[in-house]
């Protein structure tokens, strides 16, 4: 799968409280959550994201709460992929489970600037910066996680196993 688009750039430790504040967690509808995505960090995010759908951030992206509402809000707001120097572990699992593409690369996170035009090849694990002509390789996911991604999220795998068991 190929993803193209311009970037928005944020810093280290973007936590789940700024991604989606807890006062909105009574909602489970991703579209409703998306209206408040990142509002604590960047109040113009909803306007910016339509023309810049790739997020680039520093270390420990998604730290804090286990709220799956965080990757759901990001995905529903129109974000096509998140590149970070590192991800907090619960956010990492949640993103894979709900089908939000994430890529971990310290080098890419450092060198890519806001507004750069990227082309991401998820299958190859390759990020091309079309603005600077740089290419970054990303560690491939282990086979089991690759399977979750290919099945479009964890529950599709679970459903297959349930059918298989019965």
């Amino acid at each position: 799968m190929i993803i193209q688009g311009k970037t928005l750039k944020y810093g280290d430790n973007v936590d789940t409280d700024v991604i989606i504040p807890a006062r909105y967690l009574t909602a489970t509808d991703p579209q409703e959550l998306a209206q408040h995505c990142l509002e604590g960090l960047d109040s113009d995010f909803p306007q910016k994201v339509s023309s810049s759908p790739i997020l680039v951030a520093g270390r420990n992206f998604g730290c804090g709460s286990s709220r799956e509402h965080a990757p759901l809000a990001i995905k529903a707001s129109g974000v096509k992929a998140v590149i970070a120097a590192s991800f907090a572990r619960i956010f990492y699992r949640n993103a894979l489970n709900i089908g939000l593409p994430i890529l971990e690369s310290e080098e890419a996170a450092e060198k890519i600037k806001e507004g750069d035009q990227l082309e991401i090849d998820l299958d190859k694990g390759e990020i091309k910066n079309l603005t600077t002509q740089e290419t970054f390789k990303v560690e491939p996911f282990p086979p089991f996680l690759q399977e979750i991604i290919e099945q479009g999220g964890l529950m599709n795998l679970v459903k297959k196993r349930v059918v298989h068991l019965s």
């Binding site: 804090g64 799956e68 619960i90 949640n94 489970n97 964890l154 529950m155 679970v158």
Partner: peptide, 26 residues
């Protein structure tokens, strides 16, 4: 547990960790 502070139970010598709602549903 679908709560990041599920790690609390380690004080009793248990392994416990937080996950999201889909992992918990599975």
């Amino acid at each position: 547990g679908a709560d990041s502070h599920t790690c609390t139970y380690g004080a009793l010598g248990a392994f416990s960790t937080g996950m999201g709602s889909t992992d918990i549903a599975a």
